[in-house]
Nucleic acid binder design. Structure first.
Lengths: 179, 179
DNA sequence: ATAATCGCCGTATTAAATTCTGTATCAATA
DNA sequence: TATTGATACAGAATTTAATACGGCGATTAT
């Protein structure tokens, strides 16, 4: 199918009403938006360019909001993401923190304001691997467990542009389910 | 984007796990599945054919369940559909039924088994037009209202192939929301 | 009646999808 | 360690589809 470069908020491209042919087109595209305009035209009784025109209009008018891939959540389930509080003897680049950061599962280490402990973000394949990692972490001299952590099972991570978290309304991809 | 003719239930095309690049691809396609493979490749750091291969695999493995148009329900709301019981003096092609069938809003007329009245299916733009039609119908000599009807507001009608209603499990388009 | 508009078709052109071939990389194996 | 096989990729070539364009018939407005 085509890629429409002109935005949705164009200067009002004649918002005709959705007729029977349009509904047939929508019925096809809801099922499978990867059909060619030739096949689409065949199914609804139009020539390829005519079908193309219809779809373009349906997109511009917002009747077709989007054309999106529908993802199987099970297939894209990501490994576990855990935020773990740990106690160390100090802050900064102490030997304990150096040792912790050696583990590839540890992605971030934060000094938490108003608290005497560190917060680390770790990512593992499953709970078993998470437990193994934590026990290994707690074996590090000077590191003690606070038994305070959050474990999340993420689906699909999406990059967030710097700054947009302060925008309002929220950017579209923040409002959509993360799969 | 492409149209995959080979079915999903192929003989197990190596269900590799979804890696970081796949997730990037999914992130793009969830937002907008109309991007070309060239642009998709650009965004995830692959050549167009490589991106194509990845997407093909994601489709075959079922990770990408479908690529569908997302429709604005408000834009495709259909006129009212009403099923109305009416009393007539008889069955068959009586003058009353002929008069009723003259109205273009009347799409079907049924003789109902085990009942002495008729069931007609009518379609109007809105409730106002529906009321007007009904009052006109009831003005027909020999036709009296039973004050029994059902009014539905449909979104998008989809043709149903003859016979499939007896199939099990139900065909996919029966299970999907009708917009 | 006449002009204007709209939606469509057929054709031509452009762009993208798809195929093909060679290559680098990694893993398993002799 | 060398070798084989499989995998994923890039680049070029080919096929197919998307898109632009011109003209026609029907409908609507003037």
């Amino acid at each position: 199918m085509d890629k429409e470069t002109d935005g949705i908020l164009q200067n009002r491209p004649a918002a005709r009403d959705v007729d029977a042919t349009d509904r047939k087109i929508l019925g096809v595209l809801v099922d499978d938006a990867t059909v060619s305009y030739a096949e689409l035209g065949d199914r609804v009784g139009l020539s390829p360019p005519a079908a193309h025109e219809r779809v373009k209009r349906l997109r511009r008018s917002g009747t077709i909001r989007n054309t999106a891939a529908i993802i199987d959540p099970k297939a894209v389930r990501k490994p576990l993401l855990a935020f773990v509080h740990i106690d160390t003897k100090g802050w900064g680049k102490t030997p304990e923190l150096m040792a912790i950061s050696e583990h590839p599962e540890v992605e971030e280490i934060h000094s938490v304001a108003g608290d005497t402990c560190m917060l680390i973000k770790v990512r593992t394949e499953d709970t078993r691997a998470l437990e193994g990692l934590l026990s290994r972490l707690y074996e590090t001299p000077g590191v003690t467990s606070t038994r305070s952590y959050v474990v999340l099972s993420t689906y699909l991570e999406r990059p967030v542009q710097p700054g947009i978290t302060t925008e309002w309304p929220a950017p579209r991809h923040m409002a959509k389910p993360l799969y």
